[in-house]
Nucleic acid binder design. Structure first.
Lengths: 216, 216
DNA sequence: TTTTTAAGTGAACTGTGATTCACTTATTGG
DNA sequence: CCAATAAGTGAATCACAGTTCACTTAAAAA
């Protein structure tokens, strides 16, 4: 006895799991959480409603996982940007630019993850995700402050502000309809503002990071 | 014939309407939209469930009106700050400070209005409300840019960023539990950052607005 | 091939809360 | 006081997804 699925079967199962998440993501990207009912997801994968529950205990869990994946994917990319040897000023600009550009590519997905209303379980997960983003920026700020690129400030508060700033500015063009002119320009404006917010005078990047006031 | 309610009766009716809105607001402030079911609202006013529908066609409508009232109240206050003769820099700082301070006083209410998930009808209203806020800041920025207090920038984008910045920074300490140390400090940090974001070098207020580069 | 276990099905069930509506009560006009 | 009309009641209804579950089908063990 001690039954166990063959490797091939195992794979099929875990593939299913993945497919379910992808389908959910796809539907969300298409029309927000509204579209992503369990039934719709099931149909999209080619499974029955009930089957979903073999893989996820509840809709909330499924969404939380989808959200989590997306967030950790984003965070990984952003953290990657911090590996390079650019100054914190450049890093900050680059991080915002990178996120904003991607967000504008997948409008609905970004909107769903940033702002669309859902039930509070999932909302909690979204908050947690946001906290992870904020942490990235907090790290940039801390480093920058220590090395004298940014003036002294509360890094946690400032990081929250910065994340709030670019997400808000992204939501409008990303929401249901409405999409303004030049994405490049928009991204630039947003990223510049974030750098200024951190305390770097005037514009960024072209200044290639002159220290504001070399600390000690 | 041609029946009409006596003035006294009329008043009572419109009072009821007001009471319903206040009750809804009260419940929201207490525990978010979750708590504000039609039945709960009705009980709170001392009316029956059905009676509510004499005054509002649907729950969504009621909430939208409550939200609208709150927003226009806020906007009026903020617009009031622009009457004074302070520089745009001071105005910007003052506006953020004013809003933030009030938001921290009514945590749940602010949270509900800024971030709590609800159905998409009401959400649309919230977006609209946000747009009104943003407009206030856009005006400040435009004026400031024209008069040389702020560097050239896209005022709509910058305004959105600024609103996003302070709301995000407000949400965390305002959300369900969690409330950090010093509100005053927090508000100061947020407001300063917003001013910097607009392009004013280093800190605000104490500089009492020196022109960055007197335009033309 | 037969038995055992797991995967998959989808119609029925459930919980929740908004909305309705037949009816009661209060107000207005004659 | 007696219609006529409107306000108010609250239990019943509705809507709608998420979730369950008795059953079917497929895959592993014997």
């Amino acid at each position: 006895m001690a039954y166990q699925r063959s490797p091939l079967m195992k794979k099929r199962l875990s593939d299913n799991r993945q497919q379910i998440k992808l389908a959910a993501r796809r539907l969300i990207a298409l029309g927000g959480f509204r579209e992503a009912s369990i039934t719709a997801v099931a149909q999209n994968v080619g499974l029955s409603t009930g089957a979903i529950y073999r893989y996820f205990p509840s809709k909330a869990e499924l969404f939380i996982e989808v959200l989590g994946d997306a967030v950790s994917h984003e965070v990984t990319i952003l953290r990657g940007l911090l590996e390079g040897e650019g100054s914190p000023v450049d890093q900050l600009y680059a991080a915002v630019e990178s996120f904003a550009t991607r967000a504008l590519k997948g409008p609905h997905l970004a909107y769903a993850f940033i702002a669309e209303p859902i039930d509070s379980d999932v909302e909690a997960a979204r908050m947690a995700g946001r906290a992870q983003f904020i942490a990235v920026f907090e790290d940039i700020l801390r480093a920058g402050i220590k090395r004298g690129f940014f003036p002294a400030q509360m890094p946690d508060v400032a990081a929250a502000c910065i994340v709030g700033a670019f997400t808000e500015a992204l939501i409008r063009p990303v929401a249901p309809a409405a999409r303004p002119a030049d994405d490049k320009k928009l991204v630039k404006a947003i990223a510049s503002l974030c750098v200024r917010a951190a305390g770097v005078a005037i514009s960024p990047v072209e200044t290639t990071a002159k220290r504001v006031k070399p600390k000690r």
